[in-house]
């Protein structure tokens, strides 16, 4: 590229503008969450509030059973992750390493599942949960995601790359298949497992649609749903409280992103490209 000083200045200004387009909304969110209600209604808007009103956060937190929401969110996201690992690791191993009758058929079933978006089948699943009496329980939020076609697909690829000699050697040493999975396959596929884990956790931590459909009371609501309830506080929209509540939801994810940016970006790009 030409080292033209004018070009470099233009390039620099462009980069700063680009950052502004993506960072300023979040700065605005943080700024609003510290304002008084009156300050949110000044025009032109103020970027820096007169004083930092920390009580907005406690007001948001105390406006509903937020501890319960937080616990539900954690149980659901972590529970899904554990079940997914427990179901995708053996399945991916079987698809990658065994030849058995119907393996193509069952892998086809998995691939079809991969193509079906959950937003599309919520109504029949809702009716099913209703007939099982599982509506408005955490089971309704966890069970449909207890396995992941996508996870099996990713993991099968990486299990296939483990050299067969390694497994033969282990089998000569009388290692059980279970041991082979835990001591050879899982450690070798660790990057893929971490990638998938982050992807899955963030997706379910942020999810709004599924809990909205499946829950009706605070006993099983998750954090994103709880945040949307903040709108009903005090009649009109109190943007300062609302933004404070959203910040509670956003901060943990941004915090993780700040420290594991490379891994997270790689996770999303990898899962996108494959």
């Amino acid at each position: 590229m030409k080292r033209n000083p004018i070009w470099m200045v233009v390039n620099g200004i462009g980069l700063v503008l680009l950052i502004c387009i993506f960072a300023l909304p979040f700065v605005w969110m943080i700024s609003t969450s510290f304002k008084t209600l009156g300050e949110t209604m000044t025009f032109p808007p103020k970027w820096i509030p007169n004083q930092l009103l920390w009580e907005n956060f406690s007001k948001a937190w105390n406006s509903g059973p937020f501890l319960k929401y937080l616990m539900n969110s954690t149980i659901v996201s972590v529970g899904i992750l554990i079940l997914q690992f427990a179901t995708i690791i053996p399945a991916a191993y079987a698809f990658a390493r065994y030849r058995f009758k119907g393996s193509n058929f069952f892998f086809g079933v998995t691939m079809i599942t991969l193509m079906i978006p959950t937003q599309l089948i919520f109504l029949p699943v809702y009716l099913q949960m209703s007939s099982w009496g599982l509506l408005d329980t955490l089971w309704a939020l966890i069970l449909p995601f207890a396995s992941s076609a996508f996870g099996i697909f990713l993991l099968r690829q990486s299990f296939k790359q483990v050299p067969e000699e390694l497994l033969e050697a282990a089998r000569l040493d009388q290692a059980s298949e279970w041991k082979i999975i835990m001591k050879i396959m899982v450690p070798m596929a660790k990057p893929v497992l971490i990638t998938f884990g982050m992807f899955s956790f963030i997706a379910h931590w942020n999810d709004y649609f599924w809990p909205l459909v499946m829950t009706t009371t605070d006993a099983s609501r998750t954090l994103p749903l709880g945040i949307t309830k903040l709108r009903e506080v005090d009649g009109g929209v109190a943007w300062n409280i609302l933004m404070a509540g959203n910040l509670i939801l956003v901060i943990p994810i941004l915090f993780i992103f700040f420290f594991a940016q490379r891994q997270i970006i790689r996770a999303f790009i990898y899962t996108g490209v494959k």
Binding site: L18, P45, Y208, L225, M243, L249
Partner: peptide
């Protein structure tokens, strides 16, 4: 810059939606 423009992708759509409702507010929006 790549990290900054990617960041909205991992934020919950709930927060994204509410933030933009506020930004797009007719009278007091940014």
């Amino acid at each position: 810059v790549q990290g900054a423009i990617f960041s909205p992708h991992i934020i919950s759509l709930v927060s994204i939606s509410m933030l933009w409702m506020w930004i797009m507010d007719t009278d007091y929006g940014l």
